[in-house]
Simulated scan of single mutants.
Amino acid sequence: MRVNTLKRAAVAFALALPGAAIASVVAAPAAHADGCYTWTRNLYQGSSGADVRQLQIRVAGWAGYRDIVENDGRYGPKTAAAVKRFQQAYGLRADGIAGPQTYGKLYQLQDNDCTPAHFSHGELDDGCGGSGYDGGPLSEAQTRQNALRTMWKLEALRKSLGDKPLDVSGGFRSRACNNRVGGAADSQHLYGNAADVTSRTKSLCQVARDARDNGFSGIYGPGYPDHDDHVHVDSRRENNADRSSNTTSWSAPDCGVGN
């Protein structure tokens, strides 16, 4: 553990150096929890690359009211605003620039498999028995990546609800599972983009309302048929099969959440 701590400190020191020095530490060693990922430079508006995509996955849940952060590898205004909201939520300097403090908090939040602290693939995989991400319309790798992004949005939603437990009762479904439970033919659960959640401390209506700030473009809750005991959240705007329509859908009539 001490070695990992020293490695993380080295990366943080390098990131704090002037721009010319930063360029010399691109090959910085991995730090704790970064068997997942380690950032080796500061990121800000105008930056681009795979490291921006990795950041976008983790701040997708801080998109703001009825908006999303595209996972396009370009650090534009939406990404900067999401980073700033993340920083504000965790008591960091809120400047919209991803640097050592921001990365340090992300390292604290993520596990070695890149999942956030309070959610896991075991919760988001096949809803009929936890058999993994096979059997849907996308490849296992793409479905798994979608599920990871969903988990980071759930982590943001959990934080916005006071850092209280948010329980997942349903996630990815294979086609066979979806048929078995009577899911819609085009259900977002098939893509790893959806989760059904409940809270032990907050009302379902509060969960549904808050979810509008956390990057979800589909929300169904109390008052919507068969959703009085959970809130469904999904990322249909980011679904490869649905991207062209730029669709958002909100329906929790008992909570005042409508289209």
Rank of each mutant, 00 (worst) to 15 (best):
R212D: 09
A211I: 00
I57T: 05
S187W: 01
T201P: 01
K7S: 07
L17F: 02
V69I: 09
D229S: 14
N246I: 01
S160R: 04
P165S: 07
T40K: 04
A194W: 00
V231K: 07
F216H: 02
D229C: 02
D254H: 05
Q110T: 12
G256L: 06
I57Y: 01
R158M: 06
G91N: 07
V197R: 01
P225Q: 10
A185R: 09
G192I: 00
G171E: 07
L138G: 03
S174K: 07
L17P: 00
W250F: 15
E155D: 11
Q88C: 03
A211C: 13
D134C: 05
G130W: 02
D125F: 01
S48L: 13
I22E: 03
T150M: 12
T115I: 02
G96C: 14
L138Y: 07
D254L: 10
C177R: 03
Y44F: 14
A81C: 15
D226S: 11
Y224V: 04
S217R: 01
T115C: 11
L154S: 11
Q142H: 03
T248H: 06
G49W: 05
Q108E: 12
G61E: 06
A27M: 10
A21Q: 03
G96S: 15
G130H: 11
E155M: 05
W152Q: 14
S199I: 02
G258M: 13
G182C: 12
I219A: 11
S48E: 12
R53D: 06
H230A: 09
G122R: 07
R85H: 07
